[in-house]
Structure formats: structure tokens, C-alpha cells
Design a protein around this nucleic acid. Sequence first.
RNA 1: GCCCGGGUGGCGGAAUGGCAGACGCGGUGGACUCAAAAUCCACUGUCCGAAAGGGCGUGCGGGUUCGAAUCCCGCCCCGGGCACCA
Length: 828
Amino acid sequence: MAKAYDVTGIEKKWQQRWAEEGTYEVDADDPRPPWYVLSMYPYPSGAAHMGHVRNYTFGDLLVRHRTMLGHAVLSPFGFDSFGLPAENAAIKTGTHPRVFTDARIVELKESITSLGAVYDWRREIRSHDPEYIRWNQVIFQRFLEAGLAYRANAPVNWCPGCQTVLANEQVLADGTCERSGDLVIKRDLEQWFLAITRYADELLADLEGLAWPERVKTMQRNWIGRSEGAEMDLVVNGRPELALRVFTTRPDTSFGMTYAVVAPEHPLLDLLTTDECRAPVEDLRARAAASSDIERLSESSSGLAKRGAFTGSSVINPFTGQPVPVYVADYVLMGYGTGAIMAVPAEDTRDWDFAQAYGLPIVRTVQPPENWDKDGGGAYTGPGDKINSGWMNGLDIPTAKARAIDWLEAEGVGERKVNYRLRDWLVSRQRFWGCPIPVVYCPQDGIVPVPKDQLPVLAPDDVEFRPTGESPLATHEGFLHTTCPTCGGPATRETDTMDTFVDSSWYFLRFTDPWTVDRPFDPDVAGHWMPVDNYIGGIEHAILHLLYARFYTKALADLGFLPAGLREPFANLFTQGMIRMDGTKMSKSKGNLVAPSKYLTTVGADALRLFHLFVGPPADDVDWSEQTDSVIDGCARYLDRVWRLAVPGDEAEERAVVPDPRSGEPTADDLEIRRATHRLIDRVSNDYHRWSYNTAVAACMEFVNLLGPYQRSGAHQEVLDEAVDTLLLLLAPMVPHVTAEAWERRHGDHIHLRTWPVADPELAREATVTMVVQVNGKVKARLEVAPDIEPSDAEARALAAPEVVAALGGAAPKRVIAKPPKMVNIVL
RNA sequence: GCCCGGGUGGCGGAAUGGCAGACGCGGUGGACUCAAAAUCCACUGUCCGAAAGGGCGUGCGGGUUCGAAUCCCGCCCCGGGCACCA
């Protein structure tokens, strides 16, 4: 496409200007009100792809718009630079992950700059910077002091072939190791945890106040999974000293408990199992230990029949005093509640299925609807009155629940209990390319934090990457062996590194004050900018990253790193849609990436940005198809039209076509343009406000459709200037280069330092509006009326319209609904 | 199975109780040109009709309302998330 202006030249020129002049560098002492815009920092994967373009277009637009609205806008950028791809590349090619990563950062930074996105690059953070590692480790040690970081045994994915723990992502769908193909098994290992569950209640409650997409909040709620119920002791029949503790959310159904179930890993299983039953129980336990979660799940589809075994013992139902048999089954998970349940088949679908398979009795304790059993029956989990429940009979479920808990507490056999699905965060990774966990193990003193003056603990460079599945740290003698900071004796270092989600849990705080040398950031400076006003990123981070970052913010505030009142990091979250191609997400792994670079050299960054804004609502996915290029061309054509309007006489040909503008008294047509100008300000400002950029662009396109003919037919100089200047200002955050250049040619100064225009309500008011006249809801006439027309006048004008008279055919209207100045409906 | 989204021309989408299809893409015709490109103008939901005009139309079926793409009830389809959590 031939462009009306020098796209590449102009875009390069302004990108340099913004960088050299530090246009978007701000400091905490800036007198303007603070505003913090942040796009989720990316994993440096090399040149930017379309997903980046979309993400950074929205972020950049907000930065520029907020600046024009008079804010000091903090707009930092950094890189989530630890992670698996660099380490896998090292294993494959022998290149050190740092070399590999740094090269990709340079590439990504350059390609983001070429989109015209502006950042305060003085604040750049890379997760693998020694200074970032230092503060990551300092924070970890404070967590350790506070008991928020601890070591515990955990069942992890263990690959026998690789002799290492695997991340969940490294376990394939069939339960095998992605590298060796061995069957991954569960194994208990000592690992580091962060006590996120301590904040479970606050993490749940504070979701209420966040201006986040509802579905993200729902996903977090489900993930936290709070459930209220009761725990109670079931005394083992014949062994009064032994009790099985169970958790239930339905204490009201206790009278219907016809058996109990323990998880295969339950510590009492051995004691409960009688000699006659030992063989099948052991068999089941061995199978559960050897099988992956995936296998356990896939077995569930084949029924519950071979998933349980009778232990030979029974426990007393405290409500009925009757003994019920105890089973072991793998549908009960050791990791949730107490690892044991009371089974009420009548009111729980899994218990129902199990009872059917093992021929266990079923007693209904809630009256199901009339035809329930005729219609197939099964477990009934709906509302209803209590039956077969002794003193609970006749109560509704909520009341019965409360009474049952009261009873348990009065009898001293149980109490109210809240459980969470959320588990503590396992942060140990047997990986090299991550932040080392800064502790040493001493045979004398146990776990000892590395002293502050020895931080950061950095991984050594002289390591060899081999495809053994083991971190090179674990076998590096120089790194591994050290002395205990407490007793001076020989000790070994922790060789695990932290989950990279730790790095991304506080980077937005370091951005506020990245120069501080004696702590991660100054609490007051962080408090000045925080919380982030606009956080922008992909929906794929809805749970993990956003939950961890919220947890970190709360914990850091409680530990004095932040003002105590700062409870949430991201006031406002926006999740932009992804780019799809042939129905699947566009991604490097799928090999269906479209490189932005080809558009930058032809239509330019502005046109590409405009496309992303115009193509649809920001939250919606974008389908990249054969037609997309023509739409992008359309955006480029529009920018040409804007350019010709704003910089007339640039081409000799143009001068001949466009007459010189007039001066003197403005005509009615001129006033119509002024009106359109001021209405445009309102419309576009409102669209920016509600993130409706596609309609903002449409409004600007309509406006140019109006101005083109106006200019060619002989415009009034001042009216045209006002119109074009306004248009450029409104477009400036969306298409920063072309508007900057056009503005500079017109006024000599910098458009992005100008203030956002404000509409004059007087000028924006319409002289007349179109009023629709309907007869029985069908449009019959359109009348031009004054915007403030009285209902009686509107009615009279409507009834007098010739089309209406014809439609009525002399009949008297039954009813007339007048909603001036928009509409009058005449009902016959 | 459960929980969210969503379904509007040939396509992306607009309209959140009041003119359905703004704006753009694509298409058709025209102006300019020796010609093309670029640019500009007009038309473009569908059916009937030569036209004037009229019928139909926002996944399907009901309902509320003077009036429904929009609100309510039931269903169908598509996309996403969670999935033995007691």
C-alpha cells in the first residue's frame, strides 16, 4: 500500500523522541496525582507476537490517555526471566540460560519499542538480576521467620527414570514423564511451602471490593473453595480409645450414615484393618500409591466397584448409637478435610454409587419430591424436610445443620469447622534457572538462613547442563558444600530454587522503587503508587499469579514491607482476549504465530494498533483470518485520510483539489461541524472510559467521513482547525506516532503533553433531533423537533404528520405514548 | 456433571427497553485516468415488486410491555473454566 506519509520515518523519529526526552519517566515527588498502569510482565520469548501487540496496545493507550488527563503515570516494564525454556535450551545446546535469556530480552524489548509503547525503562526489572534475587531471598527469609515459609512432607510427582520431582505441567495426560516416558508416581518428599492458607479467608473476602471481571473472581472463589460444616469423632466399635475423625458439610444427614470411608493413605487404616481383610486392603493401598491422579480419575469412569475394600472394623454413629462398617476407598482424598468421611448414600451421589456397588444400606433423611424414586431415584441433594432423623424430623436442612452442630458440641463429640480446597503453596523446584532458596542445612543447627551480608545466593556459572533431569546445582560440589553460619561446621546448601510464580508475586512493588539498596522497596513510595490502577493481562493468570500476588501483598503488608492498610495489589484488572487462528490460541508452541514485524514495515505500528482497538471489544478473542489483512489495510487507509486532513498541501495534487478555507461569519453548515466536534469529544471520552475502543474508533471514522467532504467543499478555517485538532487529540493515545507528527507540523509542540479536550455543552447541544413516530409499534414517520419539546407538543406534531394521518385512516387512537424527544407511539 | 461467557447481514461488530445492522471489511456500479494503482462518490439484511411500496428478520418456543436483540421462563447450539473437595 502506498501511504500518504512516511510511516517508518515518523514512527522511528517519535520512538526516539519519547526515549530521549524521557516523556514517560515519572518520580514519586511528581505533583500530579499518581496513576499506575501495568501490563503483566512477560516471559522473554524473543520477538513480540500478536498477543503482545494486543496487550501492550491497551496498556500504552491507558498510559497516554491518563497522562493527557493530568496524571503522573507510572508505566514500568520488566521480564519474568527465570523459567524452563531457557534451561531446556541449555540442556539442548549447552548455552548458559543467562546468555540465552538476555539475548531474547534484547529482542523483545526492541520489538515492543517498535510498537510505540512507552515505558519508564529506568525501572526495568529482570527476575534473574542479582539485586532482584537478593530481595526475593530477603523476603523469603522474613517469611521463614514469620512461619509463613516452612518445610513439610508432600506427595509430589516423582519420575523413577529421572530420579526427580516433576512439575504438574511436565506430567503428560497419560500420567507419564514427558522426558523419559516412565509412569509418574506419587512420592512423599520434604519440600518448601508458603502458608497461603493462613490468608484463605481474607483472600476470599477481599475479592468483593475488587473491580475485576466477575468470572476471574468466581474462579478464585472456587479455587479457595471455602466450605462450612462440622468435624466429629466416630468411636471405633469395641475399641473406645480409638476414634475416626470425619468432616462433613451435611451434619444434618448424620442419621443416614450407613458406613464410613477412609482414604488409602489414612494413618488409622492399619489399626482398623482386621487380619481377614488385610489382603484386599493392602492391595488397594498399593494400587493407590502407584497410580497417578489421572489413573484414579479415569478409573472413576469405569465405576466404583474395584476402588474400595472393607476394613473389617465398624464405628459408632453418634446420632443413632448404631455401628456402621468402615471401608477404604480411593475416592476419599487424604489431602482434604480429615481424610475420612461419614457416608450418606441417600444424599451424596458418590456415596450412592459406592453403596450400590458394595450392597450397603441406604436411608433417606431428606424427603425427596413426589416422583423422585419413580423417575429413577438416586441420591437426592436438594431441599426438603428431614425424615428418619430422630429429633431432627420435620426440620428444614439449614435449621437441621445448625442443630446438629449444636448437638455435637454439647455432646463433646465434634464441632463447627470450615475447610478450604486451597492448599499451601509448594514452591520448591528442582531446577537450576530460578531463584535459589537461601538456606543451608547443618547437622548441628538444622535449617539456617544464609546471613543477609552473604545474599544474594547466586547459582554458580561453571555448571554443566545434562539431560539427567537433575539440577546441576545438586551435584556442583563448590555450591553444595558450605559452612554453617551459626556453628561454623560443615553444612550443605539448599539446591532447590523457587517457583517462578514467586518472582512475579511482588515485581509490581519493586517497580515503584527499583533503586532502593537497603530493602526491596520503600513502604511509603510503594504506598504512593499502589495499588495498580490498571492491571492488564491474559485470562490464563486468573488463578495462580493473581492469587499468589494478592497473598504476597497481604503478607508483605503484615510484615512491615508495605503500609499495613495496603491489602490488595490490583484495584482494577482487565483481561484482554486472546488471538486465535483456526479456532485455537495463537502461540509459539502451536507454530501459528503471525509476526507483527511484517506490518510494521508496511502499514506501520499505528495501523496495527488501530486494528487491535477497532476489531472488537477488548475482552473478546480475535480470530485471525485471511480477511484480517484487509481490515488492517482499512485502518491504514483511515490514518491516511486523517493525515491528509491534518497536513493539507503536503502533496501538490492535494492543493489543486482542496479549496482554501474561508474566514468570516460561520454558516449553519460550519456550526453543524462545530457541534459534531464537541459531540465527538463526549462520545469518545465516554468510550475510553468504558473501554469501548472499537466504538471510539468508529466515532472518529464517522467524523472523518464528515470532515472530508466539508474540507473539499470549502471549509471555514477556524471550524476546520478546531475539528482536526480535536480529532488528533482524541486519537493520540491510540495512534501516537502519526498524531504526534501531524500535531508538530500544525503547532510545533508535543501532542502527548497537551491536555485531553473537554466538550462545551452549549456547542454540543443539537438544534433539532429526530423524533420517531410509531403506529402500533411500527415506524411511520420521522420528525425534526426541538430537543426540549413538551410531551403535548410532541403528541400533537405526531398526530398531524401526514403518514400518521394516512395510517390511522380516520380511526381514533386508543392510546398515545409520548417519550419526547425520541419517540411517540400511537396505539390503535 | 457443575459454574461462567456467548449466539445479530457474506465477515468483524454496533445498538442494554424506544429508528436493528453504526463503523469497518468484502461485493456491485460510477467518477478521475490512454490504462492501472491510489483517491473520491453511490448502493449493498432478506423476500415479493418494474417502481412506489409492502412482508419477514437478532439460535428455537413461550411470556411481560404501548414497544423486546435488550427483561422473565423453558429448550438447542458454540466457547471457556472447574471437575472424586465429602
